[in-house]
Amino acid sequence: MKTENDRELRGWMDEWRDNPAPAAEARAAILRHVRRRSRTLALVSAGELVVTVLLLAMLGTLLLRAREPETIAVVVAGSVLAVGALVLSTWNRRGTWRPSAETTEAFLEISVLRCRRSLRAVRYAYGIMVVEALMLVPWLFIGIRRHPDRRPFGHDPYIYYGALLAIVFGAATLGCRWYARRVRRERRALQDTRRDLVS
């Protein structure tokens, strides 16, 4: 492309590039902003690990106080599930890190892969919720049968715990569905873009 001999392109370039470079003050503001955002993103990335550690600490405390065998069993199973979920999540993200400096084609491929992995993570989340429900429902049932006189906040324990589980699992399911819908839309857009760019 011989730009110097191409008056049309040269003219467009002059018009196109008619905006000033950011001043030193603006550059400093951008740097402050990206450093702040970087720290936030690092915290968010570490969030999963932090939540797992907090959960394990809480379960460990429960285990020390637990007397009933079903409680010990549910706490141990919960700890295994928490660690398993973290391992699964880390494994699910393999090969999708730092694609931003790749070529457009490679970037789109990794972005589509990321969407697929995110959808797989949603499926894992559903599976984990089912396992949690299978652990918690019998544990609650046994606990209620063992202590029939206990009435949480004056309510019938079956209704109270049933409603609590329904709200927590219902909210989690709705959240997963919303996220999956968003990821599917993004994947469709990325695939369309890839098709546009290849054709």
Binding site: P99, S100, A101, T104, L108, S111, E186, A189, L190, T193
Partner: peptide, 20 residues
């Protein structure tokens, strides 16, 4: 090249996440 790759890739991500 590095800078423009990142810029266009972010642009594509922005485009794909934008509400239609």
């Amino acid at each position: 090249t590095f800078v423009f790759r990142i810029a266009h890739n972010r642009g594509l991500t922005h485009r794909s996440r934008r509400s239609p």
